[in-house]
Amino acid sequence: MRRFLARRLAHGAAVIFIAASLSFLLVHLAPGDPFSSTLDSAAISPSVKAAWRAAYGLDRPLLEQYLRFLGQLARGDLGPSLLQPGPASAALAGAVPNTLVLMGTALILSFVIGIGVGSWQAARAGSGGDRVAGNASLVVASLPEFWLGAVLLLVFALRFRVFPAGGVVDLVMHDSLSPAGRVLDRLRHLALPSLTLALLGSASIARYQRAALLDVLPQDFIRTARAKGVSDRLVLWRHALRNALVPTIVLLGLSLPTLLGGAVFVEQVFSWPGLGRLAAAAFHARDYQVVIGATIMGAVLVVAGGILADLLHAAVDPRVRAQ
C-alpha cells in the first residue's frame, strides 16, 4: 500500500512538472506579453515597455527564463504577479479555497443525487418511472452548464429572490454576523452554483450507477443472499450497492477534470471568485505567473483527486487492498 502510494505520488509529481512546463511554453509562445494587453496601453512608449520587460526579466532568452522559472518553482515560489501586486501564490491562495468549496460541495451533492436516483431506477428497472428518470437524466446531461446556470440564476435569484445572484459572502454584512449566521450566509451563496454543477454531474452518475447495479444484481452472491431469505430491499442496499459503489468511486477520479472545467463557466455566471475566474483574468492580462500557477493548481487538484479516488477504491474494495 505504501509503495503504491509512493509510486502514485512520484507519478503525480512528474505529471504536474510536465503540465507546468507546457503552460510555461504556451503563454510565452502566445503573441503579446503582460505589457501589451490593454488597448489603452498604446499611449505608453515602446522604450518604456522595453524597460519594464527588462526589469521583470522578460527580455531574456526563453530557455533562460524557463530555467529561472524552474529554479523558483523548486523553491515553491512562482514569482510576482503582474496582474496584481504581490506574489502570484497569494492570488492563487485567495482563489483556490473558493473553487475547492464549490467543487467539493458539487461533488458530494452530485454523488448523493446520482447514486440515489440510479439505485431507485435499478430497483424498478424497466418500469415507467425508470424510463422517465432515464430520459430526464439524458436530457440534463446534454445541457451546457452556462445555460443551466443562467436559468437557475434567472429563476431563483431574479424571479423568486431565494438566493443571492453572485459572490461568496455578503460583501458588507458577512463580517458582522454571528458564527452561525456566517455559515448560513456562505451556504446561501453556495447554493445555486453548486446545484448547477451537481445537477449536471448527477445525471451521468445516475446512469452509471443504474447500469453498474444491474450488472451486479443477477450475480451469484446476490442469488445466494436471496436464497438465504434476505429481503429484496436489503439485498439491494447491502450487497449490490456496496459492489456497485466501487466503479462509481473510480468515476470520482475521472470526473474531477471535467468538474473543474465546468466550474470555470459556473464561476463566470455566478461571479464566484475562484480559480476559473482568476485564470480567465490572468490569460487576458497575460499574467504569466498566475497563468502557470493556475494551471499547476488545476493539475494538482486533478492528480490529488485521482490519488484520493484510488485510496477510496482500496478502502471499499478488499481485492485492491490485497494487491
Partner: peptide, 9 residues
C-alpha cells in the same frame, strides 16, 4: 452579464 441581476436584487 450579472450586472442587471445584481442591480435588480
Amino acid at each position: 452579464n450579472s450586472l442587471s441581476t445584481r442591480l435588480t436584487t
